[in-house]
């Protein structure tokens, strides 16, 4: 474990807590893409299949359970909670995310570390995580104004993967056999997708203005 990875995990956790806070405190999910949340729930379920078979550390197991439970509870809230579901921007959140799932599944069948059930789902979860933010970014562009908590949620979500890239660079230079190319490449793609969001987020922060994404 290195500081970059720990900081990345904490930033990821903060992003999930910010989202839960927003939904719980405001009883609203306006500006949040249900499709991105469903994709994230799928990412965690597909990646943590080894939750009961490989014990790595208490920290690892606890964080896996937290991510699975939080992502499922956000999806449940947005679908079932009577107050929250009313504020869901159904007509704006129209990204066809099933194509993302199909594409990533096909990609995992073609490019993986080993042709085993667990490894294919692991590669699938990495590819899916790289593109899972797309419905959310499209929704933000469509809804134009971004409320603070949603902006912070997306910002922390992007920052976590950027910290992981530093972690992979660190591990590449400190561990002789570290060759996780699937993680690195999908992580780079994922962080790149946040590129324009980070740019507008920084501009709005610098001008102390409200975050406006060009439609």
């Amino acid at each position: 474990m290195n500081i970059f990875r720990f900081a990345g995990d904490m930033t990821h956790l903060i992003s999930v807590l910010v989202l839960l806070l927003k939904i719980y405190a405001t009883k609203s999910c306006s500006g949040i893409s249900l499709k991105t949340q469903e994709l994230y729930a799928l990412v965690f379920l597909a990646r943590y299949l080894d939750l009961f078979t490989d014990f790595i550390s208490v920290y690892n197991t606890v964080m896996k359970i937290v991510f699975i439970m939080s992502s499922l509870s956000i999806v449940w809230c947005m679908r079932m909670h009577p107050m929250v579901r009313r504020s869901y921007d159904k007509e704006l959140d129209t990204f066809r995310h099933y194509f993302l799932i199909a594409g990533c599944l096909l990609g995992a069948l073609l490019v993986h570390e080993k042709f085993t059930f667990q490894e294919i789902f692991w590669a699938f979860s990495l590819y899916l995580e790289a593109v899972a933010i797309l419905p959310q970014l499209v929704l933000l562009q469509r809804s134009g104004n971004v409320d603070n908590l949603t902006g912070q949620y997306v910002f922390f979500l992007g920052a976590y993967r950027a910290l992981y890239i530093l972690n992979w660079i660190y591990r590449y230079f400190t561990e002789k056999h570290f060759g996780r190319w699937i993680s690195c490449i999908s992580g780079l793609v994922q962080t790149a997708l946040y590129g324009d969001f980070f740019y507008y987020y920084f501009i709005s922060w610098k001008n102390n203005a409200k975050l406006q994404l060009p439609a």
Partner: peptide, 10 residues
Amino acid sequence: EQPRDPHDEL
């Protein structure tokens, strides 16, 4: 057979 390297990252 080398033990399967469990993915230790989240």
